[in-house]
């Protein structure tokens, strides 16, 4: 009993000493309309571009820990067989090798920086990889009437407190999640959550839903890091042009 009371007291004292998480949010940079200011140059520091799941090192591939919550991707049996086939044939079957737009969420964790811009009606992400552009409309407009097949889908965003929540639909079945053959169909539906964790970090979470390929929705989580180097810029990596230039010089 004495012990229990001490624990309660300790808990009360601790809760007084450590400010609740919400007390930290005023330190976030904000735009004039009071939204978190996510502007700047960001990049992941993980190995999801190679494989979103746990994987050992291979030649040229760093070992990495899963960005998939729980590590397991709930493929249907047929889809799992297809994933294994993709992995085997990745040297030619991976759409990345053709210089195509890599899709969402793959473009978010390619090992290249991207820049976020904000206006009250629009969040724009400009990617070094393949000049990719994501227009995320935050003005309350719905997805356009489909069907549409877009390489980066159609993104509509809204703010839930300090979290930017983005609903993305209208994909193609031609993009993968990574270089390990993880894939989806054109019925892919994503819900992304961008939650600032201080001025230089964004917690990025994406819920993946695709009943043609997965038996249930699943989640990836990772951190976006602000690039802090003075004068850092988003440059240009145009894979299509580089592939063509290499083929022309052969």
């Amino acid at each position: 009993m004495r012990h229990g009371l001490t624990s309660v007291l300790t808990a009360v004292l601790l809760s007084l000493a450590v400010p609740p998480a919400s007390a930290q949010t005023p330190a976030l940079p904000r735009t004039s309309d009071g939204k978190p200011n996510l502007q700047g140059i960001w990049q992941v520091l993980n190995t999801a571009a190679w494989d979103i799941q746990d994987h050992a090192a291979r030649l040229g591939v760093p070992a990495g820990q899963s960005v998939v919550v729980g590590n397991e991707i709930p493929y249907t049996p047929a889809a799992l067989a297809k994933k294994r086939q993709n992995l085997e044939n990745r040297a030619t079957a991976d759409p990345e090798t053709k210089g195509y737009l890599p899709g969402v969420p793959r473009i978010m964790y390619m090992p290249y920086p991207f820049q976020i811009f904000q206006t009250p009606e629009q969040v724009v992400m400009v990617f070094e990889y393949d000049r990719g552009v994501r227009n995320i409309y935050t003005k309350g407009t719905p997805h356009p009437r489909g069907p549409l097949n877009w390489w980066l889908g159609d993104s509509r965003g809204r703010w839930e407190g300090d979290t930017l929540v983005v609903d993305v639909v209208y994909f193609t079945d031609q993009t993968w999640f990574d270089r390990a053959g993880n894939f989806h169909s054109e019925d892919l539906h994503l819900v992304e959550r961008f939650t600032p964790a201080g001025p230089d970090h964004i917690n990025y979470e994406v819920t993946v839903e695709d009943p043609n390929v997965f038996t249930r929705p699943w989640v990836m989580r990772m951190v976006l890091y602000r690039r802090k180097e003075p004068n850092v810029r988003v440059l240009e990596y145009d894979p299509g042009r580089l592939i063509d230039e290499a083929s022309a010089s052969r």
Partner: peptide, 27 residues
Amino acid sequence: LQPAGDGYILWLHEDHHSQRVIAMDER
């Protein structure tokens, strides 16, 4: 687009998903 803070102007073009990031500072 003239995003918050006036540090950049963004000129987006539909043509082949092209974009221009125009830095408005003296870096």
